[in-house]
Amino acid sequence: MAESQETACKWTAFVAPDDATVAELRFAENSAMRFAACGIQWDAVVIAPLERGLAALDALDLPQDEGHPVFADYYKQELIVQVRAGTAVDQFEDVQGVRPLSRGGWLMVPAKGVGTPYAAWISRPTRFGVRYVDAARLREALLTADRHGAPARC
């Protein structure tokens, strides 16, 4: 059975925020972002361009509403995915267009709220426990998305 366009593109729909999200982010406080150390509780995988990272999440078939920490940097057009500490560098050091951040790295992260017009959570960690994306599975999904070429716009 063919996969529907809606199902296949659940993440790539975030390539640009909708008008309601833009309106909400426009009035975010200055404290909507925080500087966070990588490699302690989590590593970060920074994927460029944003659309490529979203296509990888679609290929991974990752649920959006289960507390996986993923945010979009709309200013730099990058997707940032948090993975278990100590797993990013081994999986992504040789993947073009991907920057793994681990111990010693720092990242501007949206605060617990939504974020800003420039960077916003598209899947927020929950207070019931963070469900980090598996770095090895993310790598395979990214390579799969790359093999299939540019993702279709939804």
Rank of each mutant, 00 (worst) to 15 (best):
P151S: 10
L25M: 07
A135H: 12
H148V: 00
D61F: 03
P100W: 05
P117M: 04
G105D: 13
D65W: 13
V15F: 05
V89K: 11
E6H: 09
M1D: 05
N30R: 14
F14E: 09
G67W: 07
M108V: 09
A23T: 07
T126S: 15
R52C: 04
F35L: 15
T116Y: 08
Q5A: 11
L143R: 13
R147Y: 02
A23R: 15
V89E: 10
A37K: 13
G67Q: 10
A44D: 15
M33N: 09
L138A: 09
A135D: 11
Y132I: 00
V133H: 05
Q64M: 11
I122G: 00
P110G: 06
A8I: 01
A48F: 06
C9L: 01
W11T: 02
E6R: 13
D43R: 06
D58Y: 05
Y118I: 02
A145K: 13
A37L: 13
V98Y: 01
T126M: 14
P69T: 00
D58K: 03
L60H: 02
L25H: 01
A55S: 13
F27P: 00
Y75Q: 14
R127G: 15
T7W: 05
Y75D: 13
T87C: 05
A23E: 14
G129D: 07
A32C: 10
A85L: 01
D43A: 14
D94Q: 12
V46R: 15
E24T: 00
P69Q: 03
D65G: 12
V89T: 07
R137N: 08
A111R: 03
L54P: 04
A20I: 08
V70Y: 09
T116G: 03
D73Y: 04
D18L: 05
T21H: 12
P63E: 10
N30H: 12
A48G: 14
R84N: 06
E78F: 02
A48T: 11
C9V: 00
L101D: 01
R84Y: 04
W42L: 09
P110C: 08
A8T: 00
V95C: 12
K10R: 15
G67E: 08
A85E: 09
Y74M: 04
M33F: 14
A55L: 02
E6F: 10
A28F: 07
P125K: 03
V98S: 02
C9D: 01
E93R: 13
A13E: 12
